[in-house]
Structures are given as structure tokens and as C-alpha cells.
Amino acid sequence: MKVLLRNPRREVEVPGPTTVGALLAHLDCNPESVLVIVGDELVTHDAVLADDASVEIRPVISGGAGDIARGTPA
């Protein structure tokens, strides 16, 4: 299957079928840090991905220190 990874954007081929959980383990992704999306839909960790599936692994961790505001402004 085609797997789209982000930051930087790149694509890798992984043999299927496999479960989402196994795919994340294979790619060494912490399931807490990503969402797995097929088409426009979220898939849960037990979902089985077919060999011809197109899958996006979207990181959800974001932000720099400035986004993480301190208490008072200025």
C-alpha cells in the first residue's frame, strides 16, 4: 500500500494487508502522535488495510514555544 507521511512530505510502500496498529509499529510511529486516514475517513487501530490502500499518517504534534503561551501577555 501507499503510505503518505508528513513533515517532510514523503511516500513509502508497505506490503498489505495489515492492521493500522501493525503498520504504525512497522513504521515506528507512536499511535499517540498520529492519526491514520484513508480517503477522508479516520481509521481505528484494529482496522485492516488492504494491499492496494492509500493511507495517510498525519502527525498531530505541533507548535513552538511561542504557541505555548506563558501566563501574562508581554
Binding site: R6, N30, S33, S62
Partner: peptide, 21 residues
């Protein structure tokens, strides 16, 4: 979805990864 190009190497990102571990 894409990350701010200035965030790279930010220490808070490392803290988030540690907490997620």
C-alpha cells in the same frame, strides 16, 4: 497541517515526544 518552518528543534516538541513515550 504543515508545521511552521521555525518550529524545528524547538524544545517543547522534544518534551511532547517524551510525554507521548
Amino acid at each position: 497541517v504543515d508545521e511552521c518552518p521555525m518550529a524545528a528543534g524547538n524544545r517543547h516538541l522534544a518534551y511532547k515526544e517524551s510525554l507521548n513515550a
